[in-house]
Nucleic acid binder design. Sequence first.
DNA 1: CCAAAAGTGTTTAATCTACACCCATGG
DNA 2: CCATGGGTGTAGATTAAACACTTTTGG
Lengths: 227, 227
Amino acid sequence: MKKIKFVEKTFDHPIPAVDIVILTIDQEKLKVLLIKMKKAPYEKCWAAPGGLVRTEESIDKAAKRSLFDKTGVKNIFLEQLYTFGKVNRDPFGRVVSVAYYALIPSKGIKLKTTEEYSGVEWFDIKNLPDLAYDHKEIINLAVKRLRAKLEYTNIVCNLLAKEFTVREMQKVYEIILNRKFDKRNFQKKIHSLGMIKKTDKKTIGEAYRPASIYVAKSKKFENVKVL
Amino acid sequence: MKKIKFVEKTFDHPIPAVDIVILTIDQEKLKVLLIKMKKAPYEKCWAAPGGLVRTEESIDKAAKRSLFDKTGVKNIFLEQLYTFGKVNRDPFGRVVSVAYYALIPSKGIKLKTTEEYSGVEWFDIKNLPDLAYDHKEIINLAVKRLRAKLEYTNIVCNLLAKEFTVREMQKVYEIILNRKFDKRNFQKKIHSLGMIKKTDKKTIGEAYRPASIYVAKSKKFENVKVL
DNA sequence: CCAAAAGTGTTTAATCTACACCCATGG
DNA sequence: CCATGGGTGTAGATTAAACACTTTTGG
């Protein structure tokens, strides 16, 4: 059972924190938002944003707060990923980190980060810098989870703008899963799932034949067998 | 138990704990191991075993320790489930609980629990008693995860004895997923996945025609599309 | 009228589902 | 020799995969 003796004697416990893997699609790449570290031994490393969990807030709330502080965005996809609790994962103290991952639509949201912070950057997932703590492992797990969820949920909608074309959705799949799909089969599949709705709008201003614009029926989680 | 007022005041951080949902198949039912609570307001409730995470141990280690303390078993399937961190989930203090789930083979392991502790019992998952904290939610999530993993991994091997028949495996699926499978299709499927190996032994002593005995090729995690 | 992406159907292969009879053993 | 669960194959349905041409627009 949860022993008190230990508590009373030493007041010595690990401290819970959250770390957020913030992902987006940008310039046909899957990217993650990282923050430049300052303290040794990580002065040349980058890290996923995060922070300690306060006593008066839930861990979900702490995650939302960390996300908002770094990006200025609210109400985007944010889901718990895994909790990392090795003893020596943080050289500054015994910190247990509850990792989350967040998805930001590829356009339509302006992050405050790029203007305000100098040490905040988007990195291509295929070309990460040196990372602090166990954040490489955390980011890899987030990408793995995202890949898995693309295959059986409508999570892709959270990476697309409110309005999008089928081709844009297909590109998101191709970028994240590193493979190509046949566009006829892709259309057939996506339409049979009923997770998107055609509008009567079409893309304008772009060269070549305009594409029909779609919206997600729901960004909430639905289990659908996509692939 | 998980306390404590003065902890909250002194240390302004939540305290990490672990809770373990221990599952097994017994008498053709999926069962969970629970411990009787003593303290108000939970004196009529049961709870999944757990404990605080010590500073000098990883959370995985804390989970293994909690599991061993309650069951006396080591080296069984134990996987992190989810971290529960609502502010008021524990009336005794601000505790963040990293939940794990463990699978115990249906025979071949003797638990010390049943002999030593009076307040420890196996409960049919379909007939749970009143539960303390948010443990109902935790248990439900563990079962959900188990059901999901049955469908795309070889996790089932962790619920079977070292040696088993195909029919026993099928029963585990049927019990946990609440549905029947055609035995011909089931055999075909299982064999095509290559996750089990036939031995030259057969069941003896039981009435009727003996069944071939199989062993798992690996209990380690493999992704295989089972259903 | 040319370049480039949008949009659309069919054929084949693979997988899944449903289904019934004989076999081996203990009593 | 009987009762009971073990063990096996096939046909039809569904789903997935491969594949090419016509349409629409901007320049």
